[in-house]
Design a protein around this nucleic acid. Structure first.
Length: 565
RNA sequence: UGGGGCGUCGCCAAGCGGUAAGGCAGCGGACUUUGGAUCCGCUAUUCGGGGGUUCGAAUCCUCCCGCCCCAGCCA
């Protein structure tokens, strides 16, 4: 499933090359292999879009395979969430839902085969000793005492490992490769460890578990995968990946590595995301500030906008940090066309139309989506007392501020022109509590018969008709573009943005929003796109989350200090 | 330091010996009942740096510099 014509990239070049020389009988078969030890994030989305996208473009298949070889950290809830997220993104693995744990038996047999070929042995070293014997980056390692064991003894020992005769960590099965190989991964890597842990799928059937290196390539092979696409850190594993498959003499997929995604102002490491969740820095994996797929979904992002983003960022081998502005841009472009408009005042400032008849009200026609006339119009109540956005009024405005201020005329969207005649202040604090205006009855609907047109159009809500609501605004989770870039001795968590969440309790919405369905997306005119939250909304009392702001030229002017130029 | 990778505009990224695509961001301007949207225009004589090969190089060779990954019985 793709939304745009696939961009060319080096992975496609490799596949095209393989196809050109007739490899794999012309098949293209990929897989997305998550470990169910956390929720999927936007970086996984890149991999999902790549793998499923490639399969679709080449008329091939893409499997969903859970790489569940470490029972200590894996849970069914993670499996559940991963499936939900992949599906939500719009991809279908059909009947190809696989688990590395389903291959434990075959993996064991492959190991026996390797032992028979003299390519693996049972090692008695402790974990610390294995590390010590591995040697250093510059110096060779030492051979394990068990390295010289004969095939029969190894077979016997390995069978007894499986049978549970040895305590956890007491023995490992290792490949016999080369303790002096400059690539540390080739220095007799561990294939199996003894670990009496309950596996969420195989239960207590096994007390030995295969390592990633032993399980991954063989799993790919078993599934007939042709191109095993993974991230750059696995590049040094490729010689090992190939070595096993060649020794075993079985189908050998081609491993291709690409640069994982980094997004600005957030972290994309499962370990760090887990910390944020476990230590309560956020309200769970789907906290709208998180970079997880579930958080983006809850916040109101669309699957298409994420797919589009993944297509746009490209696939290459250079480490990079993509600006979140690119993600937001695609989202806005979609939502601009699809989200119905509504008026909502986040920080209400009372406006009294002194020449509007007291006690009366009327209904005005408002366009639901200017980008899509087919969406029609709705009625919005209007009366003498209104609320406008506090930010839309300034008693003593700078030169470039052309919203409401004393003596100035503005347009109320789809309603009337009004002119500010005065303010009422709290005598104690001096705070402006009310603004007085007169409206021009001749401008009903927002057009003046004489053709004049105010510089600003404000959104508004009728005080007596508006419904109160809670609205949550979000800013980036971290203050730094790269949260991992730390000052001396600093912790990455010190880069968390204390203002990433702002809860506004007293917002006022136009009445129609009371019926907003949980999960529905809206554009609050002049403010941004908002989503009625699925978790917090109550019937008749929705809670809105800001998905993304609208482009805000005024905010940019203020930020750059040019408001008086 | 051994091995494996990577370095093209502020951020991504094409380019594969023939004389620097595109997107985002930014900046102008037009239009506008969202300071939104839309539309038009501008922004790398230069490809981490130095040598070399060539009629011609970001693309080939070479040396140097910088960044990332590998010493889990994690993935």
């Amino acid at each position: 499933m793709t939304d745009t014509k696939p961009k060319d990239n080096f992975v496609r070049e490799i596949i095209d090359g393989d196809l050109a020389v007739g490899k794999n009988q012309g098949r293209v078969h990929t897989r997305f292999p998550p470990e169910p030890n956390g929720y999927l994030h936007i970086g996984h989305a890149k991999s999902i879009c790549l793998n499923f996208g490639l399969a679709a473009d080449y008329k091939g298949k893409c499997n969903l395979r859970f790489d569940d070889t470490n029972p200590e950290t894996e849970e069914p809830d993670y499996v559940r969430s991963i499936k939900e997220d992949v599906r939500w993104l719009g991809f279908d693995w059909e009947d190809r839902e696989f688990y590395a744990s389903d291959y434990f038996g075959r993996l064991y047999d492959y190991a026996v085969d390797l032992i028979r070929k003299g390519d693996a042995y049972v090692c008695d070293l402790t974990a610390e000793q294995v590390t010590e014997y591995r040697g250093t980056l510059t110096g060779p390692g030492k051979e394990s005492p068990g390295r010289g064991r004969g095939v029969e003894e190894n077979l016997d020992l390995f069978a007894r490992m499986r049978a549970g005769e040895f305590p956890d960590g007491a023995k490992t099965l290792r490949a016999r490769i080369d303790m002096a190989d400059p690539n540390l991964l080739m220095r007799d890597p561990v294939l199996y460890r003894v670990r009496r842990a309950h596996h969420y799928r195989t239960g207590d059937a096994w007390c030995i578990y295969p390592t990633y290196d032993w399980a991954h390539g063989q799993s790919d092979s078993i599934e007939g995968v042709t191109h095993s696409i993974c991230t750059l850190e696995f590049e040094v594993h490729r010689p090992l990946y190939d070595w096993f498959l060649v020794r075993l003499g079985i189908h050998r997929p081609r491993q291709i590595e690409f640069a994982r995604l980094s997004l600005s102002h957030t972290v994309l490491s499962k370990r760090k995301l887990l910390t944020l969740v476990k230590e309560g820095f956020v309200d769970g994996w789907d906290d709208p500030r998180m970079p997880t797929i579930s958080a983006f979904r809850r916040r109101g992002y669309t699957p298409a906008s994420i797919r589009r983003f993944c297509d746009e960022i490209g696939v290459a081998k250079a480490n990079s940090i993509v600006d979140e502005a690119l993600l937001e841009h695609g989202l806005r472009e979609e939502l601009n066309k699809t989200a119905p408009r509504a008026m909502a005042v986040l920080r209400p400032l009372k406006v009294v139309l002194t020449n509007y008849p007291e006690g009366s009200a009327e209904e005005l026609d408002c366009v639901n989506n200017p980008e899509d006339p087919g969406r029609g119009t709705r009625k919005v109540p209007f009366s003498r007392v209104l609320y406008i956005e506090r930010d839309d009024f300034m008693e003593d405005p700078p030169k470039k501020f052309f919203r409401l201020s004393p003596g100035k005329e503005v347009r109320l969207r789809y309603a009337y022109f009004m002119t500010c005649t005065g303010v009422v202040k709290d005598p104690a604090t001096g705070e402006i509590v009310e603004v007085h205006c007169t409206y021009d009855p001749a401008t009903r609907g927002g057009d003046a018969p004489d053709g004049r047109s105010p510089k600003a159009t404000l959104h508004w809500v009728s005080a007596g008709h508006a419904i109160p609501a809670e609205v949550r605004l979000y800013d980036t989770l971290f203050t730094k573009r790269d949260p991992n870039e730390l000052e001396e001795g600093a912790d990455w968590k010190s880069n968390l943005n204390p203002k990433s969440l702002e809860t506004i309790a007293g917002a006022r919405l136009e009445p129609s929003l009371a019926a907003a369905e949980p999960g529905s997306r809206w554009q609050f005119e002049r403010l941004g796109y908002f989503c009625a939250d699925i978790g917090l909304s109550r019937p008749g009392a929705p809670v809105f989350l800001r998905t993304v702001t609208l482009r805000d030229t005024w905010a940019r002017i203020q930020k750059s200090g040019r408001e008086n130029e």
